[in-house]
């Protein structure tokens, strides 16, 4: 080994002496090319972060100048007036995100498995499942408001089963369920597409080997396919959770009074709370403080996922 290594080093061509002038020239071009990003990073990244940090400790109504108020904004988050409302917004957001993401993951994976079985007309099915993800937004939420309405499609369907459905989006008990249905419909397809790409890139030798060893379809899925799909699972989880915690459009549009969190603040989410504090109450300082809490929570959850990924995400079989 040592011998070989020594010879290898001898055989290697001497590295071209780095020409300092050329290297310097290339470095200048490097900064020339990344300049747009760098400028954007300073003005639309670094500066806003610093400013919002300062605002979090200030009182600012969007006119004049912000005034420093210390920890007032953070105290306000737990005071008897704002505390319960903010707590509700956090609870709602967590409930929605932590329900939606597992459902999207399970359904996305299930659909991908179905589609990966050499199905005739696969592109048509794939399009049907993926299209909702492409158009997810106000235009498709409009139709869901009708579907989930008092005489909407869902309740008509439930009536066939003898169930008297609620007015989903007007009833405090069911409004979050309604939002969850819309989000699962709109987010599953994107995850499915990523799982499908993963499933079709699986090394067939492994699956065949498992089959020869007598593993049935279920065991093959659980012990061979699923571990190999953990990179896709991880990607979908990180992206899904970050966007789930940022839920805003759905909860904003479905309300009779957009952005109010009606009924009874049950559809009030964290980003909507921030939006309300900024534009309805003109409390830019307090809104920034809450935005910081939101960002910290998302960052913490993302970091936690990356940290835990070492234990359960397998990157061995690169294709």
């Amino acid at each position: 080994m040592t011998d070989g290594q020594g010879r290898l080093q001898l055989r290697r061509r001497p590295r071209p002496q780095p020409n300092r002038k050329l290297a310097k020239r290339e470095a200048r071009w490097f900064y020339f090319f990344i300049a747009p990003w760098l400028i954007g990073f300073i003005f639309f990244g670094l500066w806003p972060i610093a400013a919002s940090f300062g605002l979090a400790f200030s009182d600012y109504d969007l006119g004049g100048w912000p005034s420093f108020v210390g920890l007032d904004n953070f105290e306000k988050m737990v005071d008897p007036v704002q505390g319960p409302v903010l707590a509700k917004a956090i609870r709602n957001t967590l409930f929605i995100a932590l329900t939606v993401v597992p459902l999207q993951l399970a359904l996305g994976l299930g659909l991908a498995v179905l589609l990966s079985q050499n199905v005739r007309g696969m592109p048509i099915f794939r399009t049907a499942f993926y299209l909702p993800s492409v158009v997810a937004g106000v235009a498709s939420i409009v139709v869901w408001i009708w579907i989930l309405g008092s005489d909407g499609l869902l309740n008509q369907g439930l009536e066939l089963l003898g169930i008297d459905g609620p007015v989903w989006l007007r009833d405090p008990a069911t409004v979050k369920l309604g939002v969850i249905i819309v989000m699962v419909w709109g987010g599953t397809g994107a995850m499915m597409l990523i799982f499908l790409a993963g499933l079709q890139g699986l090394p067939s030798e492994l699956l065949d080997a498992a089959a020869v060893d007598g593993a049935g379809p279920l065991r093959r899925f659980w012990h061979v396919k699923l571990p190999l799909l953990t990179p896709q699972l991880f990607f979908n989880l990180v992206i899904g959770l970050a966007s789930g915690l940022g839920v805003f459009t759905e909860t904003y549009v479905i309300s009779t009074d957009p952005g109010s969190g009606a009924p009874a603040n049950e559809s009030l989410t964290l980003v909507m709370y921030i939006y309300r504090q900024l534009l309805r109450n003109l409390q830019a300082g307090y809104a920034s403080a809450v935005a910081w809490v939101f960002t910290a929570a998302v960052a913490l959850l993302t970091a936690l996922q990356f940290w835990s990924s070492r234990r359960w995400v397998h990157y061995e079989y690169e294709n």
Partner: peptide, 15 residues
């Protein structure tokens, strides 16, 4: 990539 854009919305709005 992992900074939610909502976090920057307020100072950018002011800008």
């Amino acid at each position: 990539i992992f900074i939610p854009f909502e976090a920057l919305l307020i100072p950018e709005f002011i800008l």
